[in-house]
């Protein structure tokens, strides 16, 4: 009985070890692929709001907006009264993404052309040397 229990525990340990290694390897792969690319910042569009609606990023960061609502939204630079012109995704729908890389420091307000009350802001700061 004792032997059975012991070999069972050993089996679990071996399993945990292999599984744990696998997880560890996954984490490293992700980290490696991230560091070789530019920084990314994800913004979710859900329940007619940008989440988070305010982000501060270093210059060179790529922002990815994902639409999780079952309706078209846009990510348009500026305000409903005054367009910015730096970026405009035009309408994209559920499951689709819009990507933009910020190469210049500054403050970029943006909104949705269909739902003008939806607003967000990207603050791009100089990269830390």
């Amino acid at each position: 009985m004792k032997i059975v229990l012991e070999s069972f525990s050993l089996l679990i340990l071996i399993f945990l070890f292999i599984f744990g290694l696998d997880l560890y390897r996954d984490g490293i792969t992700n980290a490696e692929s991230q560091s070789s690319k530019t920084e990314t910042e994800n913004i979710d569009i859900k329940l007619f709001s940008f989440k988070p609606d305010m982000v501060e990023i270093p210059v060179g960061t790529t922002v990815v907006w994902t639409n999780s609502d079952a309706i078209e939204h846009s990510v348009t630079n500026g305000t409903p009264d005054k367009l910015g012109g730096a970026f405009d995704s035009d309408f994209f729908t559920e499951g689709q993404t819009f990507t933009f890389t910020f190469d210049k420091p500054g403050t970029y307000p943006y909104f949705c052309k269909r739902h003008n009350s939806m607003m967000g802001e990207i603050k791009v700061v100089p990269a830390i040397p």
């Binding site: 859900k46 329940l47 007619f48 999780s68 609502d69 079952a70 309706i71 269909r114 739902h115």
Partner: peptide, 17 residues
């Protein structure tokens, strides 16, 4: 009406848009 449907669907996914 489509916007409103989408809003409620996002909040309560069991409600089709």
């Amino acid at each position: 009406t489509k916007d409103f449907g989408a809003f409620i669907h996002s909040a309560s996914p069991s409600h089709p848009t």
